[in-house]
Write a protein that binds this DNA or RNA. Sequence first.
RNA 1: GGCGACGUGGCGGAGUGGCUACGCAGCGGCCUGCAAAGCCGUCUACACCGGUUCGAUUCCGGUCGUCGCCUCCA
Length: 456
Amino acid sequence: MRQILLHDTLTGGLRPLQPRQPGRVGIYVCGPTVYGRIHVGNARPYVVFSLLKRFLVHEGFEVTLVMNITDINDKIYAAARDTPLSSIELAAAMTEEYVQDTDALELGRPDHEPLASEMIEPIIELIEQLVKSSHAYPADGDVYFSVSSYPPYGQLSHRRVEELDQGEGVQGAKRKRDPADFALWKAYKPGEDSSWESPWGRGRPGWHIECSAMAEQLLGLVFEVHGGGSDLIFPHHENEAAQTEAARGTPLARLWVHNGMVNLDREKMAKSGGNIFLLHEAISTYGRDALILYLCGGHYRQPLEFDPEHLAAAQVGVRRIRDAARGLTVGSSPRWSAPLRERFFEALADDFHTPAALAAVFDWVREANRDRASGAPAAVGDADLREMLSVLALENLLGEDEREPPSDVLELLEERERLRRARDYQEADAVRERITALGWEVRDSPTGPELLPLGR
RNA sequence: GGCGACGUGGCGGAGUGGCUACGCAGCGGCCUGCAAAGCCGUCUACACCGGUUCGAUUCCGGUCGUCGCCUCCA
């Protein structure tokens, strides 16, 4: 089992993954708030942490991946008002869309996808503990976390409370003792169509507390990896960390791992910014394989520009791997493969450097093509490439494209062969163009022509 | 303003105190009836200014610029 290094936001450097129990890793990732279909930016943590899990499993760890779904939230209430649906119904519908959209990534599901609405009991218990220990105080049916009661506050996001821009009053600001305090529980307000009983009256949980409660519930305390988008570091993760540590006396998580943003037009892709590209549209436009390859083309912590040219390049890369794979045989790989395989996994062990790992894959592809081009006696075995690609959830590139050419295309191909034998190349090329127009590519080889589907 | 991250060739993106990343695109060649795919070769690099050093893209300091967060946000 090799040493895995990951960047930890709390310490600001690379730290080794050191599980509580040898070989077992718990990962909690902040998932979406379901009030609309998710975009490519929302999908990045889903992809990054799903692939990280794959890698850790490959390395022999037993991994539990938790990705929550926030289904209680002001935005959901607001969105539901524009529909005939209740906020609960809207959240349920959007959760279904979310599951469908992410299923299309073909990365499997997280092991747990808890809903805030199903975790009310543990949430209330956690808040009670905070109130009991004077880290929180009720006020008119709300409950607030007292930031000043917890001196380490700010350590995760590396800022001091005094440095925060203390904006004007949000709702309830007058109930807060300190502007930096944040809500753990929000009293029911007219117009909201969901609420739960609590020791402080009817209401609903604040945003940050649900993650503290759910993570502890499913993974225990001081679990190995807490993940999410870098835009969540403050205040969301700062607050999560503060709540749990104040209530339990131990840290919530061991490592805090954050992915960079997906940009569109040089700015963060965001629903509120209006510059979004929906996940399901990206998949139908560029293909799932190209999208995964594109996301792996940048280091997870760096921003990634969503640009048609980058996606097109990823499509070409997909095709390059797929073409190379067609010439492979099932079986163990040649001796030149081992160092490349090692480079691949070392790159991933070093803070999950997928771009460096991909370079090893492409080196492998060239090496295999070179063998084939030089007419090496033995066919190249695919085992190592399969192993590498499967960690990136791209092993399907090794499979044959099942699409069979339709009969009219096959007839045209025969027609072209007749013309070529008759040396009527002009007509033969014209037929080839007709085949291309039907979506198929002709490649002549020493053993005869091959037909390949164009595009994906 | 504060905090954090980052600035590598046409684009994306690795890496290193002196030696080819890799992919896409371009150019030349091989192969092909011609292509495509593939292989070989090849041009545009390390934001700027200082410093350390025999030598820095790589270390140190500063400048400029970009992005994120400081409000809901993956």
